[in-house]
Design a protein around this nucleic acid. Structure first.
Length: 264
DNA sequence: ACCCCTGTTCGGCG
DNA sequence: CCGCCGAACAGGGG
């Protein structure tokens, strides 16, 4: 589930715990989500620390705690976050639970493609700043897009829109939504897009990111009925524009849905 | 049983 | 060296 907008939704859920101390931590320390992470330091430092702020960049989240502590989260394919009661009992896939006096902050991830990172230090961890502009920021401009498309000119545009080094936070459904809105064939090589197509791609990317973030929720139910997402997995799914049957194939290593009539 | 999956990383290869 | 592609990771659901 988690792409840009869902990540933002989950981050805000945990914000309920801002201003409150962590009194106890439950962790499945040997699980893959903690790969490369010092879980003993995490437990030692975060116990007693107060959650102060949080931030999201693309699909990544960073939670700042008192006493110079930082927690990074990535939801992978199946990660979710929730607020639970203070007497919450961690189940099999609840790999990290931060207990506060009046609630529990729960991180759940069945498939464990997600990740938990911990950092102790006066400033944000080195891995946080990666120089990739947020789609909704002014730094993601027409120039940046052009340079990125040129750098990856041999790859199918679908694969390029999935690259986190350029399209921060865009995942599979948003990529299909963007290319459908921009009327561009997903298999088209990035370098073959003309100026008009690049303009359309730019506008569609901004639009889908901004609208998804505005409508933000735990799933796609609040997104307009006119969006592709409601049709793309359905057997016999049709293009919301011209009602022709959608095509489906693996492009850029991922299942891709598109309308062969309006996407060229 | 078998196949699919809203993600990222890594090794092979051109 | 650059960059594309498929495989691997782990588990649940159809």
């Amino acid at each position: 589930m988690p792409e840009l907008a869902e990540v933002e939704y989950f981050r805000r859920r945990w914000n309920t715990g801002i201003g409150h101390r962590v009194v106890r931590i439950a962790m499945h320390t040997r699980k893959r989500v903690f790969r490369g992470t010092d879980t003993r330091a995490l437990r030692r430092q975060l116990t007693g620390a107060r959650l102060l702020t949080s931030e999201a960049r693309g699909k990544r989240m960073l939670f700042r705690f008192s006493s110079a502590n930082w927690l990074g989260l990535h939801l992978g394919m199946s990660g979710r976050m929730q607020i639970a009661a203070a007497d919450f009992r961690a189940q099999k896939h609840d790999h990290l639970v931060l207990y506060q006096a009046e609630r529990a902050l729960v991180f759940t991830d069945a498939r464990q493609f997600g990740r938990v990172q911990f950092h102790h230090g006066a400033t944000a961890p080195g891995w946080w700043e990666n120089g990739v502009p947020e789609i909704v920021s002014e730094k993601f401009d027409r120039d940046f897009l052009d340079r990125f498309l040129n750098r990856h000119r041999k790859a199918p545009i679908k694969a390029v829109v999935l690259m986190q080094s350029g399209f921060s936070g865009i995942g599979n459904w948003m990529a299909d939504e963007i290319l459908w809105r921009a009327k561009i064939l997903p298999s088209k090589r990035a370098g073959r897009l003309n100026a008009q197509e690049r303009n359309q791609l730019f506008r569609a990317t901004k639009f889908v990111a901004r609208e998804s973030l505005r409508i933000i929720g735990p799933d796609d139910s609040k997104l307009p009925r006119s969006w592709l997402i409601h049709e793309r997995w359905r057997e016999g799914g049709k293009c919301p524009r011209d009602k022709t049957l959608l095509h489906r194939a693996t492009i850029g290593g991922r299942t891709t849905a598109w309308c062969a009539r309006c996407q060229r």
